[in-house]
Design a protein around this nucleic acid. Structure first.
Lengths: 216, 216
DNA sequence: ACCTGAACACCGTTCAAGT
DNA sequence: ACCTGAACACCGTTCAAGT
């Protein structure tokens, strides 16, 4: 069902993805799609999940712990990029989906695990995810922007349960969140975008300066 | 005329920017906008230019040559970001406009000049623009993607004239293009996106590794 | 339970007609 | 030269009606 939408967007562009056209592509002759999905938004959400699941599948084929974090992380990100190159509409779509989906959580969680294993502090992993930004998933990430799933009322009721589930499913992301909450001065600037932007900017500027000096 | 479109997009979001609504906002009671602009696309192009011109104005207020390139470049980029934060729709719009506009050329040309002045080789400046990517103008740049202005036939006829104009208006960008064309092995990978992506990725990974080692 | 067609409120855009 | 209203071909979505 969703695969057809992905294929149509690949072939004709995301602008040509219309409910009528999608129905036509599926043989079914009209807008009876609304018996399978609630919204066009739900279709777009599903497409994002399809791409993320492709990325996760592709990326998990990368060779296991070779002892050195950098080549593994590097190859994973390049593999993710390869998948995204097949779906030019995907980065913009992923960015537009309000907050992080399960697929994105899984992606960033394993990536965080590799960095932790490579000797990064939880705080540095946090900064790293921001700094990688568009290079990690092809779009400028606003990590942990809003609450990720469920409305706030729901989150309040089953808060404890969800926290446990989250800790089980995404151990490394949970660690980062915990770390940031425990950290006193980090609470104010909790995922402060300005801070993260400057962190990434300085990382690049410092790196460029070093390249200039070693090359000349 | 275009300022109204920018204001409307700021207030109600880019999705609410419709020709009918824009006309209503302008007092004029109907779609007589088509006597002032050809397309909605032309409106969007104009809005991009307005934002870019704001950015250039804002950024050129940054203190002149203080001898050190890094704080100047840093402050310029942060200033550009401030303007973009006022227009959340702008990054996506700038990215969607096919290729580089005059405003973007001017922005990148002065930025290139500052880096050259800071001792960067033309080639390293080129890489730097790619590496800065979304941090330079809020979106993932595909620099020099297609021919920037005019169709190909036009470019062939007045090629020499345009080259001279370009050299006058954007001296630093011209230098980078010349450098890349003279460079033998650079011709094959001329703005090869894969190469540039890996350059930026390695820059970040190396920087993170260094941070990990200095902090622990 | 699933599909359908007509209909509604919206788009961008065109075009003949007004001043 | 500028504005206007009706109209066209398209959206996403609803809803009463079919099997």
């Amino acid at each position: 069902v969703l695969r057809a939408a992905v294929g149509l967007a690949d072939d004709a562009g995301i602008a040509a993805l219309t409910m009528r056209r999608l129905a036509q592509e599926l043989g079914v002759e009209a807008m009876s799609l609304y018996h399978h999905v609630a919204d066009k938004n739900e279709v777009l959400d599903g497409m994002a999940e399809v791409v993320l699941s492709d990325i996760n599948d592709r990326v998990n084929q990368i060779a296991g712990p070779s002892g050195d974090w950098k080549p593994v992380v590097r190859r994973r990100i390049l593999a993710a990029r390869e998948v995204l190159l097949d779906h030019p509409w995907a980065p913009a779509l992923l960015e537009s989906r309000a907050s992080m989906s399960a697929g994105a959580m899984r992606y960033f969680d394993t990536l965080s695990g590799l960095l932790r294993q490579g000797g990064f502090s939880a705080d540095l992993v946090h900064h790293s995810l921001h700094a990688l930004g568009s290079r990690a998933l092809g779009f400028t990430q606003e990590l942990f922007g809003a609450d990720s799933n469920g409305d706030t009322a729901d989150a309040d009721e089953s808060g404890a349960l969800m926290a446990q589930q989250m800790a089980d499913e995404y151990p490394h992301l949970t660690e980062i969140v915990m770390q940031a909450m425990h950290d006193a001065d980090s609470t104010l600037g909790w995922c402060d975008d300005q801070t993260e932007f400057e962190f990434g900017l300085d990382l690049i500027l410092d790196g460029l300066e070093r390249l200039r000096d070693t090359t000349s």
